[in-house]
Design a protein around this nucleic acid. Structure first.
Lengths: 137, 137
DNA sequence: CTTGACCCTGACGTCAGCGTCAGGTTTTAG
DNA sequence: CTAAAACCTGACGCTGACGTCAGGGTCAAG
């Protein structure tokens, strides 16, 4: 059998052994998503993540938490705050929205669009500078 | 004549009278560029602006300072720091660049490009959410 | 057993771009 | 002349997303 009685194994091993997706610890989440451990704890503090706990008190996460955190990073990168993200999570998870949430979603989208335009403008400006100075080395 | 001797006039009037472009005070710069007075002082502190002084100590700016400040805003919006902007100013003013400066300019441009891509990704993500939730009201 | 990697909980530090308050001078409008 | 508006110099405060340090458990490996 795959689980001989009395076998001793680490948490990670045990997890790897079984078919059910293994819970992972905070370090793995962090490495997987390319953020710091501190950041992951911070996300929990902001209500973006929930974690189980091992008997000894260590946080245990579902493996898809890694992707979740990547998503956070994208939203942060888009200029959303933790609170914005927290507001938008229920929409994603429930798959439906009320009027207020839809308003919020559209508002955020518009903000990002506007931001992209700003950046594009800045980029053009910078390219001008580059062009001009390139011809006068 | 346009300037009768002994006439009393305010600085602004005097400036407006003459053909030479009038120096403007900080409030006008701020209003013109849509930023706070505090911000303008801050830019000076960061070495982005230089100002003359009236006998009584008030800052006096060239009118094109307004456009200059608008440019700062664009660069800030693009995520450049005061320092970045300060570094890039000589390139603009001198119209030529050394190797290091060119490297910097290209680096900043690439950063902005990357940022735009990030934002676009985030935007797409958000649009997905919007689409999904729109069909499940 | 012990070593080193990893985890925990506070809690203070950081950085940028200003906001804001205090206390005082100057300019402008009427 | 007077009141309001605008300006001045400090200097402290704020916000957000973490970094970092202190002090201390836990746990797989040799």
């Amino acid at each position: 059998m795959e689980s001989p009685e009395g076998a001793v194994m680490t948490v990670t091993e045990a997890a790897a052994e079984v078919g059910t997706e293994p819970l992972i610890r905070i370090g793995e989440v962090a490495r997987g998503a390319g953020v710091s451990v501190r950041a992951v704890r911070y996300y929990e503090q902001q209500g973006l993540l929930t974690a189980g706990r091992s008997p000894s008190g260590q946080r245990l996460y579902q493996p898809d938490t890694v992707e979740r955190v990547r998503f956070f990073q994208q939203m942060y990168a888009a200029g959303l705050t933790s609170r914005n993200i927290a507001e938008l999570l229920p929409c994603i998870e429930s798959g439906h929205t009320d009027a207020e949430q839809r308003t919020m979603l559209h508002a955020e989208r518009d903000r990002i669009r506007a931001r992209i335009d700003e950046l594009q403008t800045a980029l053009d400006r910078l390219d001008q500078v580059i062009d001009v100075t390139a011809s006068h080395p």
